[in-house]
Amino acid sequence: MRAFANHFAFEFRTGLRDKNLLLLNYLFPLGFYAMMGVMMGQINPLFIQTMIPAMAVFAILSATVLGLPNPLVEGRENGVFRSFKINGVPSLSILSIPAMTTAFHAIIACFIIALTAKPLFGAPAPVNWLAFALLCVLAAFTCAGLGALIGVVSANTRVTILWSQLIYLPSMMLSGMMVPTSMLPAALRKVGLLLPSTYAMHAFQGLALGQATDIQPWAAIGILAAGGILAFGLALYLFSWDSRNTTRRGHPALAVLALLPYIVGAAIF
């Protein structure tokens, strides 16, 4: 317990102390939120209706999918995990504790957005704050799983950026964050269903804001949860202490299995 508490406290502080992580955990999502609030309020008043879930999902993606993988790659490549292994730090802690603290930072950012969006930009506040909080936790868990998986399978930080952007950029355009999914062409809407952010958006809109959604919110929750569990399981299975000495238990290409729940979702919806 003492080890867990120390590790958690260290990783949490790192999320504020490390300039890159501070940027991705807070400065970038909150800065983007402020910018979108000012700009989009005038350009597209519809955006304000879904501003809180959209910016919450954005903050979660920024912290987890963009921020989490690089420290994992650097830890492996710089021998940090070798030191950890020798000193008895389990792989579960190496993956789960940074994921938890990153999720924690993302949730704080989500609440800053949710609490300020109404007074600052007139965005509708959640009608169910408990649902909002629980969905923040679930979305952060799922995206942190993907972030951890990207960190585990990427050979270097350049590859990490590539994989992260492959999730991040389509999420911005196709998940309903910027434009309602109902306005997208059918083919793009299907592509959007391969992204966790699409399900997170529907769950937030349906359960936290009480708005009508195309996808059953509880089904979206099920897919998100399955995606998170699968991503974490794969990250743990494919984890490598040291790219030079350790043989992986499976080929990194197995990571694509993390898409299974979303493929099922795309087939159903």
Binding site: A3, A5, S83
Partner: peptide, 18 residues
């Protein structure tokens, strides 16, 4: 290697705890 942002005191606390 240790994480670059880990302080000397934190490192001692961290590994002794494990």
């Amino acid at each position: 290697g240790l994480p670059g942002s880990m302080t000397v005191r934190e490192a001692m606390r961290f590994f002794c705890a494990y």
